[in-house]
């Protein structure tokens, strides 16, 4: 129905506005719908079809793989194994729970820091400054940088032998001897979180800045007349007003960070050992280093399930309130 209708529609691209001017018979409901909407649906259809084939189908296929034993390198065909992959993952895999814990540390740590630093940057740039547009543009540079370059920058700064970080930290007396940051299971984390914050805060700052500019000066001046301090204005006027934006930005950051594999892979490859492996890097390890696509699918599906639950809880806790 839709198919033939669409073809008919394209044969006669000009909409006939008058009712009853249709040549043959009564105009059916479908026909009228096509006249009104057909062209727009036609324009959208290539992209919608592409998204179905290129993103939604792979999503389902990934979940399907998780209940199969499938190795692309082996000649044997894939075989259905039910929940075996999950059972093995949850009970036998010695790295898995560590990877899950790392994922939470990574997402909560870097999202929290990004929100705090991003909001701070936005508050600073929202002041009356000369060349504000320039600062706003420069602020976004870390955000548009290729992740490999970001990795080079921070690997160089935190290099164990020649890094700037070790030099300054020993100079001010915080360190007695240089740390091999990326080689230590503990010290690698501050470097990762700092990198993620440096790269991710500008985008949050951009959104918060737009929200801040939506707050009218009258509100702030009224609050100032009432004798509030700057601190009170920040916590009782400004932050509550930009709460919806902070929520949206935070949710975007949580989901993107949860599935982001590039920052960690470029910086540490998930190492040393599995110290900084998170679920997305573990998918990569399973699929492209061990060539176990079934297991990789199980890791990916688990990651999806967890993020759905976490996003739901966050939405309940911080989401738009009905009142």
């Amino acid at each position: 129905m839709n198919q033939t209708g669409t073809r008919r529609r394209t044969a006669d691209p000009r909409p006939t506005r008058q009712t009853g001017a249709t040549p043959a018979g009564r105009p059916g409901r479908g026909r009228r719908w096509l006249q009104k909407h057909g062209f727009w649906v036609l324009l959208m259809s290539p992209v919608l079809l592409y998204l179905l084939v290129a993103q939604f189908y792979p999503l389902v296929e990934t979940v399907r793989l998780s209940v199969f034993d499938h190795r692309p390198t082996s000649p044997e065909p894939q075989s259905f194994t039910g929940l075996d992959n999950y059972r093995e993952l949850f009970t036998e895999d010695r790295n898995f729970w560590r990877v899950v814990r790392n994922s939470f540390l990574w997402v909560l740590g870097s999202t929290g820091l990004q929100l705090i630093v991003g909001t701070t940057i936005a508050l600073v740039l929202n002041q009356r400054l000369r060349l504000r547009g320039l600062w706003r543009g420069l602020m976004l540079i870390p955000w548009v940088m290729p992740v490999i370059v970001v990795a080079i920058i921070w690997r160089w700064i935190f290099d164990g032998q020649h890094g700037l970080a070790n030099h300054y930290l020993t100079q001010i007396g915080l360190l007695d001897e240089p740390i091999v940051w990326l080689g230590s299971e503990i010290w690698v984390w501050p470097v990762l979180l700092l990198t993620a914050t440096w790269m991710g805060s500008p985008f949050i700052a951009l959104m918060v800045l737009a929200a801040l500019q939506g707050i009218s000066r009258d509100v702030l001046e009224a609050a100032a007349v009432d004798g509030t301090t700057a601190r009170q204005r920040l916590f009782h006027v400004i932050l509550p007003m930009i709460r919806p934006t902070l929520f949206v930005a935070g949710m975007i950051a949580v989901v993107l960070t949860w599935f982001k594999f590039e920052v960690i892979w470029a910086l540490t490859n998930g190492g040393p050992g599995f110290a900084t492996s998170i679920l997305p890097t573990y998918v990569y390890t399973q699929a492209f280093q061990r060539f176990d696509f079934g297991m990789a699918g199980a890791v990916a599906a688990t990651a999806m399930a967890i993020v759905l639950v976490v996003a739901g809880i966050l939405a309940k806790l911080f989401g738009p309130r009905k009142d």
Partner: peptide, 16 residues
């Protein structure tokens, strides 16, 4: 949703 569905969630089928 498509904006969020990235990387590890789709890379296995794409590779195949």
């Amino acid at each position: 949703i498509a904006q969020m569905v990235q990387g590890p969630m789709i890379m296995l089928p794409w590779y195949q």
